[in-house]
Deep mutational scan, measured.
Amino acid sequence: GTEIELESKNGQREHYTATSEDEARKIIEKAVRRGIKRIELRGASEQLIRDMQEIAKQIGLQYRTDGSL
């Protein structure tokens, strides 16, 4: 699965493990709508990382991946 670590603007951290790319995408989209400061992805697919970079650029988000592409 993909591990997703979120940090909201007030510094609250949340951790999710998505079993599918679809689920990961839903978690990320929800977080973005809620207003999130930072997202870290571990074990994400190349496609998901590309999507994440696109989203991050659009809304000026900090993100990090573990680089295991």
Rank of each mutant, 00 (worst) to 15 (best):
G1N: 13
G1L: 14
G1C: 14
G1R: 13
G1D: 09
G1Y: 13
G1T: 13
T2R: 02
T2P: 08
E3S: 09
E3K: 10
E3W: 13
E3G: 05
E3V: 10
I4Y: 01
I4G: 00
I4H: 01
E5Y: 14
E5R: 13
L6C: 06
L6F: 10
L6T: 07
L6G: 01
E7G: 03
E7S: 05
E7W: 14
E7V: 13
E7D: 03
S8P: 04
S8L: 15
S8Q: 09
S8F: 15
S8E: 10
K9W: 14
K9D: 12
K9E: 13
N10H: 08
N10S: 12
G11V: 01
G11L: 02
G11E: 02
G11Y: 01
G11F: 02
G11M: 02
Q12T: 12
Q12Y: 09
R13T: 08
R13I: 11
E14S: 09
E14C: 15
E14T: 10
E14M: 12
E14Y: 13
E14F: 14
H15Q: 08
H15N: 09
Y16I: 05
Y16H: 05
Y16E: 01
Y16F: 07
Y16P: 00
Y16L: 05
Y16W: 09
Y16A: 02
T17Y: 12
T17E: 05
T17W: 12
T17N: 06
T17G: 03
T17L: 13
A18V: 12
A18Y: 09
A18P: 07
T19M: 12
T19L: 13
T19A: 11
T19C: 13
T19Y: 13
S20Q: 03
S20K: 04
E21Q: 06
E21M: 06
E21R: 05
D22H: 08
D22S: 09
D22V: 08
D22C: 11
D22T: 08
D22W: 12
E23K: 03
E23Q: 08
E23R: 03
R25A: 03
R25V: 04
R25F: 07
R25Q: 02
K26E: 12
K26S: 12
K26V: 11
K26I: 13
I27F: 11
I27R: 01
I27H: 02
I27W: 10
I27Y: 11
I27C: 04
I27K: 01
I28N: 00
E29Y: 14
E29K: 06
E29N: 08
E29T: 09
E29F: 14
K30S: 14
K30E: 13
A31H: 05
A31N: 03
A31Y: 06
A31D: 00
V32Y: 07
V32S: 03
V32L: 15
V32W: 06
V32K: 02
R33Y: 10
R34F: 06
R34T: 10
G35Q: 04
G35V: 02
G35N: 05
G35I: 02
I36A: 07
I36L: 11
I36F: 11
I36N: 01
K37C: 14
K37H: 11
K37E: 06
K37M: 13
K37G: 04
K37A: 10
K37W: 12
R38N: 04
R38A: 07
R38S: 08
R38M: 08
R38V: 06
R38Q: 05
I39D: 00
I39P: 00
I39R: 00
E40D: 06
E40T: 15
E40W: 15
L41M: 08
L41P: 00
L41T: 04
L41E: 00
L41F: 08
R42V: 06
R42H: 06
R42L: 05
R42E: 03
R42N: 05
G43C: 11
G43K: 05
G43H: 09
G43E: 02
G43V: 02
A44G: 05
A44W: 03
A44P: 03
S45A: 02
S45L: 02
S45Y: 02
S45N: 04
E46A: 13
E46H: 10
E46K: 09
Q47R: 09
Q47N: 10
Q47L: 08
Q47C: 08
Q47K: 09
Q47T: 09
Q47S: 12
L48Q: 01
L48H: 01
L48N: 01
L48W: 03
I49W: 08
I49F: 06
I49A: 06
R50G: 04
R50Q: 07
D51G: 04
D51N: 06
D51E: 10
M52Y: 03
M52T: 08
M52W: 03
M52G: 00
M52D: 00
Q53N: 07
E54M: 09
E54L: 09
E54I: 11
I55M: 10
I55R: 03
I55A: 03
I55N: 01
A56V: 07
A56G: 05
A56N: 02
A56T: 04
A56F: 14
K57A: 11
K57D: 09
K57N: 12
K57L: 13
K57C: 09
K57V: 06
Q58N: 07
Q58W: 06
I59E: 14
I59L: 15
I59A: 15
I59K: 10
I59S: 15
G60F: 09
G60N: 08
G60A: 06
G60T: 04
L61T: 03
L61I: 11
L61W: 10
L61D: 04
Q62K: 12
Q62V: 14
Y63C: 15
Y63R: 06
Y63Q: 10
R64D: 15
R64A: 15
R64P: 11
R64N: 15
T65R: 04
T65E: 15
T65L: 05
T65Y: 06
D66V: 07
D66N: 05
G67D: 09
S68G: 08
S68C: 15
S68L: 09
L69S: 07
L69I: 09
L69Q: 06
L69N: 06
L69R: 02
L69Y: 13
